[in-house]
Amino acid sequence: MRKPIDTVMVEQRATSFTRRSIKTESKQQGLRLALSMIDLTTLEGKDSPEKVRSLCHKAITPWECEIEPPLPSVAAVCVYPSLVQVAKRALEGSGVSVASVATGFPSGQYPLSVRLNDVVEAVKSGADEIDMVINRGAFLSGCMEEVADEIAQVRVACGNSHLKIILETGELETLENVRIASDLAIRAAASTGPINDGEVFIKTSTGKVSPAATMPVTLVMLEAIRDYYEETGVRIGMKPAGGIKTAKQALHYLVMVKETLGDDWLNSNLFRFGASSLTNDVLRQISKQQTGSYAATYDFSEA
């Protein structure tokens, strides 16, 4: 039987990760690692094909500069289903994946058939990864079976595409609920077949609800992943999204991942940041260490 979540201790533990000193060489490594883990995201009503193409260019080459060793590309570009084809074409051969939100993102308040069709269409358009939202209404009403069943059906609809399950922790009220939802999501995904490393992620938020990703919430989810790994040997991925804006925050998260799950998770196959403005702050810190002078925000292209 799992111990209940101790909110006070989780918050203290999460804060402790912000007190590590990461300087010079290890900072440079950490920044590059963070950059390679970003899911560069645009999820707005005003997104246009041209905006997505420009974002894809930034994803492949985050910063036009001569720097040794060359900067990594980001992990993926995350868009709405209708823009998946545009992103797919722009990213062809680059190694950057296309992620698509689906299942009636961000609310998920649509009939199941519509949500499943959303997934099928996104996969058909070429999405390598599907970011689904769970049915929070059902979860908070205690209909756990319904939530689990829907997740299982979505995973089947994904086929070979990877699945990220958004819990929308900002709407789950308590850390205990976050843990329950994490366990539920992982088990529901596993119920449809074996999971290879990186095939299933749990993700904090849509970015449309505040608070989005916080360190305590992420820690609780990382612990769920750790416990599942210890029990089954299966590695589930983690993606905090929303509210991570600075390179310093990103390094805090990396420390938390390392100290909770270990080095195995320190790569873009098992850990991602859902963010857009984070990219330029990471680049700004990298450029500071390279050039010695602190860059202006307008020195980097808009994400």
Partner: peptide, 8 residues
């Protein structure tokens, strides 16, 4: 030095 080199 830092004031002068800060590009913002």
């Amino acid at each position: 030095e830092h004031i002068a080199s800060h590009r913002q």
